[in-house]
């Protein structure tokens, strides 16, 4: 049985013509050493992971599973400007931080971890990708503890950030860092389960049998519209209110982390899939 030991949830809307919120003061109390040459994506990862682990001594082999749709986009923008516009060789730390795995390195160093450390992306569903990977490793015994996080950064200016994601210019953007600490066999904690279904009818049948008043349902953005509507009509529509009206590429992670942090009763069901590839259902129970 995989249990949720703790969670952290950082979601910050970014308004037009406003600066990004400085994270340095918050990080000062969370990092055991002053990291230099880190970018905002790494800062967001450090903030979320340290808050999630707060007050707990993690197992040294705790795995890190970091997901993101866009990764360190702010640093990548700077690096590409240096290279293509300014015709300069990228600075070493800018180049190294273009890799998604650099953030995992600093998270591991800050928390004293030496286990597996993965950066995984799936546009619009990075949470599902990292949860699948973490749960596979835990089910097979390759990790008894897993720090699962999803981080999305905003690169200014906002109009460019919207353009590169093909978003309309009136969408409110957000940054996020959402983390779950999972552990095999921990008691007195919510359980996190995963079921996979080849057919939509089987998924629907399972949900109907498991559904209790007050439960929440979240359909991922990547789901086919028809399937999502069918799901929503079949269950309590009130369950669909999310934690924000602002957008980033991994909003499902914000839903899940916000629910976990809130300690509200009931179960959150997170549905993902497609008629042609099958369906997955993560559920965070009472």
């Amino acid at each position: 049985m995989i249990k949720l030991v703790s969670a952290s949830h950082y979601l910050q809307p970014v308004y037009d013509h406003a600066a990004l919120t400085s994270l340095e003061t918050a990080l000062r109390g969370l990092c055991r050493e002053p990291f230099r040459r880190i970018d905002r994506f790494i800062q967001l990862a450090l903030l979320g992971s340290a808050n999630c682990a707060s007050g707990r001594k993690l197992r040294p082999d705790c795995g890190i599973y970091l997901g993101s749709g866009l990764g360190p986009i702010g640093n990548n923008v700077v690096t590409q400007e240096q290279l293509i516009r300014d015709l300069e060789i990228p600075k070493p730390f800018n180049f190294i931080n273009t890799l998604g795995s650099s953030a995992g390195f600093y998270v591991a160093r800050n928390l004293g971890l030496q286990g597996q450390n993965f950066f995984i992306s799936r546009r619009g569903a990075s949470l599902q990708a990292v949860l699948n990977a973490a749960m596979a490793d835990m089910l097979l015994g390759f990790a008894t503890q897993a720090l699962v996080g999803v981080v999305e950064e905003v690169a200014l200016p906002l109009d460019a950030h919207r353009l590169r994601q093909h978003l309309s210019q009136d969408i409110l953007l957000a940054e996020g860092s959402h983390w779950l600490l999972l552990q095999s066999g921990a008691s007195d904690s919510r359980s996190l389960d995963l079921k996979r279904f080849a057919e939509f009818a089987a998924l629907e049948g399972f949900l109907k049998s498991a559904w209790r008043t007050g439960d929440r349902l979240c359909c991922t953005r990547s789901m086919e519209t028809h399937a999502a509507k069918t799901m929503q009509q079949g269950f309590d529509a009130g369950a669909l209110s999310g934690p924000t009206s602002a957008f980033h590429d991994s909003l499902e992670a914000a839903w899940l982390a916000a629910f976990a942090v809130s300690r509200e009763p009931g179960t959150l069901f997170l549905v993902d899939g497609h008629p042609e590839r099958g369906w997955s259902l993560f559920y965070l129970g009472a």
């Binding site: 993101s68 749709g69 990764g71 998604g100 450390n117 992306s121 799936r122 546009r123 699948n132 994601q165």
Partner: peptide
């Protein structure tokens, strides 16, 4: 923002619809 581009190209050309996992370590 290219993490998904390889998967998108291969899904389109091969006709695959399965899950995708893109690793950048």
């Amino acid at each position: 923002c290219g993490y998904q581009d390889i998967a998108v190209i291969l899904q389109r050309t091969l006709g695959c619809k399965g899950d995708t996992y893109t690793y950048n370590t």
